[in-house]
Simulated assay, not measured.
Amino acid sequence: MTRYAVFLRGINVNGINIKMADLKRELAKLPLQGVETLLASGNVVCSAEAPASEVKDLVEQRLREAFGYDAWVIVLPAERVRELVAACPYPPDDDGMHTYITLGSDEERLRELFDAGAGAGAEQVSLGPEAMAWRCPKGATLDSPLSKLGAKARYKSTTTTRNLRTMLKVLDAAGA
């Protein structure tokens, strides 16, 4: 049995509103155990016998059927999330700066985003083939190069971003 972190893209923004109790109820219909939701931004921890790719497909299909939107998720073993967070060179809290981790399900697309961020002067570092960390001044997240680049439709189905503090909460809930 593997403990997973599931990160939903684009819920509770842009008119796609899902209550965490409803999300948990729907995911409990899948062959997942210990389903827990965290915060209202689409973070889930669960356990499954299935590989991450199968969990991803199951969750996306369930969300599409239950909530009627084009759902996209990133699924990683909790242990891998722990490794990625440990590899992040930036602190979770810093005067005047936010630290984010962008997760990707398509290595090529994430590399493309990373390269575009470098070209735009973003302060960033690759954490592995499925994640990158970046920083920006507090109050300027939406205006930061990576936020603007990551919002493009091209990245919608393969990436999602979380504040490093949120990632730490996910790890805590996952027991990793």
Rank of each mutant, 00 (worst) to 15 (best):
M1K: 07
R3W: 06
A5R: 05
L8D: 01
R9L: 07
G10V: 07
N14S: 14
G15D: 11
K19T: 10
M20Q: 15
A21M: 00
D22S: 14
L23C: 10
K24C: 04
K24Y: 00
E26Q: 15
L30H: 08
L30F: 06
P31D: 11
G34I: 00
G34H: 15
G34D: 14
V35E: 00
E36T: 05
E36M: 05
L39H: 02
L39A: 01
S41A: 12
G42P: 08
V44W: 05
V44E: 06
C46M: 07
C46F: 04
S47C: 10
A48G: 11
A50M: 14
P51S: 09
A52N: 06
S53N: 10
S53F: 11
K56H: 13
D57S: 12
D57F: 01
L58W: 13
V59H: 11
E60C: 05
R62P: 00
R62D: 06
L63H: 05
E65D: 06
A66D: 09
A66N: 11
F67V: 11
F67H: 06
G68L: 13
W72E: 08
V73P: 11
I74Y: 08
I74W: 08
V75L: 01
P77H: 03
A78N: 07
E79H: 13
R80G: 00
R82M: 03
A86Q: 13
P89S: 10
Y90W: 10
D93G: 00
D94Q: 15
D94W: 11
D95K: 12
G96V: 03
G96S: 01
H98I: 13
H98Y: 01
H98Q: 12
T99L: 08
T99M: 13
T99R: 08
Y100V: 00
I101N: 02
T102H: 12
L103N: 03
S105H: 08
S105Q: 06
S105K: 09
S105Y: 04
E108G: 15
R109D: 04
L110M: 03
L110H: 11
L113M: 09
L113G: 05
A120D: 06
A120V: 09
G121D: 04
A122Q: 07
A122N: 04
Q124M: 14
V125F: 13
V125G: 13
S126K: 04
L127D: 11
G128F: 09
G128Y: 12
G128T: 10
A131H: 06
A131D: 03
A131G: 14
M132L: 14
A133C: 14
A133L: 05
P137H: 13
G139L: 15
G139R: 02
L142F: 15
D143M: 10
D143L: 14
S144N: 04
S147E: 02
S147C: 15
S147Y: 02
K148N: 01
K148D: 05
L149Q: 00
L149D: 02
A151Q: 09
A151D: 08
K152Q: 10
A153G: 00
Y155P: 00
S157Y: 00
T158K: 02
T160H: 04
T160L: 01
T160G: 03
T160M: 05
N163G: 08
N163L: 06
L164W: 04
R165Q: 13
T166Q: 11
T166R: 03
K169A: 09
V170E: 06
L171I: 05
L171H: 07
L171P: 05
D172Q: 15
A173Q: 12
A174G: 07
G175C: 11
A176V: 11
